[in-house]
């Protein structure tokens, strides 16, 4: 229908930093792209009713494993990031397998994963001798400047392109899942788990696949965030609040559409930035205040999120005009 649009849009996004290289907007864009990828990762499983509040944990694992491997083991992020991914995926499998096996669903699944987020946050805080605790942690600079080996770049444009590529990769995964039998199976499971099992779907295995995939992607988002910001703290990359932030942004943007999480990230991050700048230091709390009100309004009035509701609207208008 509109095959060309993604390519034109993509080309424009790639070209952007070469035309416009003001560092602050570029920084915001990189941040938006990284979080968009994280939110997309969450929605890959969240859209099937698998509401995980453990993704803060996976993101934290991604960030800290990468940083710790670099600082203590002098392991290049080229190895450290895959290591972090595997760690996140293993953790996801260890917790999710029994969940699915014992049919822990809905609220209960959300709460088990919430406890997982809590554990990751507290472990990072408790091992403060190694991780810096709640004060945060910084991967060591590699001889000051940029290095491909250390995956450290001082040039914002480089980071923008990396983040863009990863984000596009996330969308690609989303599409692949959307077109797969896995998607049908998971939709069937979310509608009626028993009936799905009766029709021959291996419920536990299918759910586990998507969970591990989603956790791995989220860990990658954490690693990316760490390498870009060169500073991580348990509160910004792990824990319950980060998990909730993911869910909220996705719901605001739209959970059932590919670009929903991205729109959610754009809105929430821009909103926070605008409020932060316009209110200055007096604004402590104001951004979240508006954020909270918006969220409630969204859920009450636009349960499908912005993108989902717009699509619905277009469909309705389309019908009435034809």
């Amino acid at each position: 229908m509109r095959r060309a649009h993604p390519w034109i849009g993509g080309a424009a996004l790639v070209a952007l930093p070469f035309v416009y290289r003001s560092p602050y907007p570029l920084h915001i864009l990189v941040i938006i792209l990284i979080w968009s990828f994280a939110y997309t990762s969450w929605s890959v499983m969240g859209r099937f009713g698998l509401v995980s509040l453990g993704h803060g944990g996976f993101m934290g694992i991604g960030a800290y494993v990468t940083a710790l491997a670099w600082n203590y083991g002098h392991v290049s992020p080229w190895l450290g990031v895959p290591l972090a991914l595997v760690a996140g995926m293993v953790l996801a499998a260890v917790v999710a397998y029994p969940c699915f096996r014992f049919r822990i669903t809905g609220h209960y699944f959300a709460l088990v994963t919430l406890a997982l987020s809590g554990i990751v946050l507290q472990v990072i805080t408790a091992t403060r001798d190694y991780t810096g605790g709640s004060l945060g942690y910084t991967p060591e600079r590699y001889h000051g400047g940029s290095s491909l080996w250390a995956l450290q770049f001082s040039e914002k444009t480089t980071w923008y392109l990396i983040a863009l590529a990863v984000w596009a990769g996330g969308l690609y995964v989303w599409y692949r899942v959307d077109r797969s039998m896995l998607r049908y199976a998971l939709e069937a499971i979310s509608e009626d788990e028993d009936a799905a099992a009766a029709t021959g779907i291996h419920v536990t295995a299918e759910k586990l696949k998507i969970t591990v995939l989603s956790a791995g992607m989220t860990a990658l988002a954490g690693a990316l965030y760490c390498q870009y910001q060169m500073f991580i703290s348990p509160d910004t990359v792990s824990g319950i609040s980060v998990s909730l932030q993911m869910v909220f942004a996705v719901v605001v943007g739209g959970i059932y559409v590919s670009l929903g999480p991205t729109i959610g990230a754009v809105i929430t991050i821009l909103l926070a930035e605008v409020l932060r700048i316009s209110f200055g230091t007096r604004a402590v709390g104001w951004d979240n205040l508006v954020y909270g009100v918006l969220l409630v309004l969204f859920i009450v009035f636009l349960p499908k999120g912005i993108v989902g509701s717009l699509l619905d609207l277009r469909r309705r208008v389309g019908w009435s005009s034809s």
Binding site: F248, G285, W286, D287, N288, L289, Y291, G292, V293, L294, L295, V296, F298, I299
Partner: peptide, 8 residues
């Protein structure tokens, strides 16, 4: 959302 609101 109310939580965010009340906290802030």
């Amino acid at each position: 959302g109310v939580l965010f609101f009340l906290q802030s």
